[in-house]
């Protein structure tokens, strides 16, 4: 388990298998929600999680692969591509502070 404070988050990576579908959609939502904050949001295949990612948002079914690729990162698994509470928590932490565990 790794923890990061919302105020320390500079880059959020949405990872999925190919980085062409659901991760793209979720990343666009995050970018919109975090528009006013200086947080970069990228989408990548799970095997290509960049080294400077602070938080990795990944579908539950791929969380184990994400942990294997980036064991030192905060991994936030989600179930629903649009409107997932785990993702909302990350957004809330960036906006209002608070810890993100993963």
């Amino acid at each position: 388990m790794t923890t990061i404070q919302g105020s320390d988050i500079r880059k959020i990576v949405v990872a999925c298998d190919a980085g062409m579908g659901s991760s793209v959609m979720l990343a666009s939502q995050l970018r919109k929600q975090l528009g006013k904050h200086s947080v970069a949001v990228e989408h990548t295949p799970v095997e290509h999680i960049p080294a400077d990612a602070d938080v990795v948002v990944v579908h539950t079914g791929l969380a184990a692969r994400a942990r294997a690729v980036a064991p030192e990162k905060v991994i936030v698994p989600f179930q629903v591509f649009v409107g997932d509470p785990a993702v909302a928590k990350v957004v809330a932490a960036v906006k209002s502070g608070g810890a993100v565990d993963g």
Binding site: M20, G21, E47, G61, L62
Partner: peptide, 20 residues
């Protein structure tokens, strides 16, 4: 591996990284 269902009766089927 993971369903591409995204809600509201919509799915976004697509390939894998290998399929690119």
């Amino acid at each position: 591996s993971v369903s591409t269902y995204v809600g509201e009766g919509v799915a976004i089927p697509h390939g894998t990284l290998a399929g690119k």
